[in-house]
Protein backbone atom coordinates (compact mmCIF):
# COMPACT_ATOMS: atom_id res chain seq x y z
CA UNK A 1 0.00 0.00 0.00
CA UNK A 2 1.28 3.40 -0.95
CA UNK A 3 1.96 5.51 2.07
CA UNK A 4 1.05 9.15 2.03
CA UNK A 5 1.19 10.59 5.50
CA UNK A 6 -1.91 11.70 7.39
CA UNK A 7 -1.28 14.21 10.11
CA UNK A 8 -2.15 13.03 13.61
CA UNK A 9 -1.03 14.90 16.69
CA UNK A 10 0.18 13.74 20.06
CA UNK A 11 -3.04 15.20 21.47
CA UNK A 12 -5.10 13.05 19.09
CA UNK A 13 -3.24 9.94 20.17
CA UNK A 14 -3.58 10.92 23.83
CA UNK A 15 -7.35 11.17 23.36
CA UNK A 16 -7.45 7.76 21.67
CA UNK A 17 -5.29 6.25 24.39
CA UNK A 18 -7.71 7.58 26.98
CA UNK A 19 -10.66 6.07 25.11
CA UNK A 20 -8.77 2.78 24.88
CA UNK A 21 -7.65 2.95 28.54
CA UNK A 22 -3.94 2.68 27.89
CA UNK A 23 -1.62 4.82 29.97
CA UNK A 24 1.18 6.12 27.76
CA UNK A 25 4.16 8.33 28.29
CA UNK A 26 4.69 11.40 26.14
CA UNK A 27 7.50 9.63 24.34
CA UNK A 28 5.22 6.72 23.53
CA UNK A 29 2.53 9.11 22.33
CA UNK A 30 4.96 10.92 20.04
CA UNK A 31 6.31 7.71 18.58
CA UNK A 32 2.83 6.35 18.00
CA UNK A 33 1.60 9.60 16.46
CA UNK A 34 4.34 9.35 13.88
CA UNK A 35 3.64 5.70 13.08
CA UNK A 36 -0.11 6.18 12.98
CA UNK A 37 0.32 9.03 10.55
CA UNK A 38 2.07 6.69 8.14
CA UNK A 39 -0.37 3.83 8.64
CA UNK A 40 -3.43 6.05 8.31
CA UNK A 41 -2.01 7.57 5.17
CA UNK A 42 -1.77 4.10 3.71
CA UNK A 43 -5.11 2.71 4.84
CA UNK A 44 -6.91 5.86 3.72
CA UNK A 45 -6.70 4.33 0.25
CA UNK A 46 -10.01 2.62 1.02
CA UNK A 47 -11.54 6.02 0.36
CA UNK A 48 -10.48 5.85 -3.30
CA UNK A 49 -12.93 3.07 -4.14
CA UNK A 50 -16.28 1.86 -2.96
CA UNK A 51 -18.89 4.31 -4.11
CA UNK A 52 -21.98 5.37 -2.20
CA UNK A 53 -24.22 2.58 -3.44
CA UNK A 54 -21.93 -0.27 -2.37
CA UNK A 55 -23.37 -1.96 0.72
CA UNK A 56 -20.96 -2.57 3.60
CA UNK A 57 -20.10 -6.15 4.61
CA UNK A 58 -19.99 -6.80 8.34
CA UNK A 59 -20.16 -10.60 8.25
CA UNK A 60 -18.22 -12.88 5.94
CA UNK A 61 -20.91 -15.49 5.55
CA UNK A 62 -24.51 -14.24 5.33
CA UNK A 63 -26.35 -16.19 8.02
CA UNK A 64 -29.44 -14.87 9.85
CA UNK A 65 -31.56 -15.92 12.82
CA UNK A 66 -29.21 -18.13 14.76
CA UNK A 67 -30.82 -18.77 18.14
CA UNK A 68 -30.63 -20.86 21.27
CA UNK A 69 -33.65 -22.19 23.17
CA UNK A 70 -34.35 -20.58 26.54
CA UNK A 71 -33.18 -23.52 28.62
CA UNK A 72 -30.75 -23.13 31.51
CA UNK A 73 -27.33 -24.73 31.23
CA UNK A 74 -24.88 -25.25 34.05
CA UNK A 75 -22.98 -22.16 35.15
CA UNK A 76 -19.44 -22.15 36.52
CA UNK A 77 -19.06 -22.59 40.25
CA UNK A 78 -18.29 -19.32 42.04
CA UNK A 79 -14.91 -20.85 42.86
CA UNK A 80 -14.09 -21.46 39.18
CA UNK A 81 -15.48 -18.07 38.22
CA UNK A 82 -13.23 -16.34 40.71
CA UNK A 83 -10.18 -18.58 40.28
CA UNK A 84 -8.46 -16.22 37.86
CA UNK A 85 -9.41 -13.01 39.65
CA UNK A 86 -6.55 -10.71 40.64
CA UNK A 87 -8.48 -10.17 43.89
CA UNK A 88 -11.70 -11.56 45.32
CA UNK A 89 -13.69 -11.01 48.50
CA UNK A 90 -16.97 -12.50 49.74
CA UNK A 91 -17.60 -14.40 46.53
CA UNK A 92 -17.16 -11.26 44.49
CA UNK A 93 -14.50 -9.77 42.27
CA UNK A 94 -12.62 -7.15 44.23
CA UNK A 95 -11.79 -4.13 42.11
CA UNK A 96 -10.18 -0.77 42.91
CA UNK A 97 -12.45 2.15 43.72
CA UNK A 98 -14.69 3.12 40.84
CA UNK A 99 -14.53 6.85 40.30
CA UNK A 100 -16.86 7.44 37.37
CA UNK A 101 -20.59 6.82 37.34
CA UNK A 102 -22.15 3.96 35.45
CA UNK A 103 -23.47 4.91 32.02
Amino acid sequence: MAASETSISRGDVAHLARLARIAMTDAELDHLAEQLGVILGAVARVQEVAAQEIPPTSHAVPLTNVFRVDEPRPSLSAEDALAGAPAAEDGRFRVPQILGEPQ
Partner: peptide, 21 residues
Amino acid sequence: AMRYGLRVGDDGAAGAEEVMA
Protein backbone atom coordinates in the same frame (compact mmCIF):
# COMPACT_ATOMS: atom_id res chain seq x y z
CA ALA B 1 -7.30 -6.23 35.29
CA MET B 2 -10.71 -6.69 36.89
CA ARG B 3 -11.65 -10.37 36.40
CA TYR B 4 -8.55 -12.26 35.28
CA GLY B 5 -5.02 -11.78 34.10
CA LEU B 6 -2.49 -9.13 34.96
CA ARG B 7 -3.21 -6.28 37.40
CA VAL B 8 -0.73 -3.45 37.74
CA GLY B 9 -0.74 -0.37 39.95
CA ASP B 10 -3.38 -1.43 42.46
CA ASP B 11 -1.79 0.33 45.42
CA GLY B 12 -5.04 0.93 47.28
CA ALA B 13 -5.13 4.57 46.26
CA ALA B 14 -5.46 4.26 42.50
CA GLY B 15 -8.93 4.07 41.01
CA ALA B 16 -10.17 1.30 38.76
CA GLU B 17 -9.74 3.47 35.71
CA GLU B 18 -6.08 4.14 36.51
CA VAL B 19 -5.38 0.50 37.25
CA MET B 20 -6.97 -0.49 33.96
CA ALA B 21 -4.86 1.99 32.02
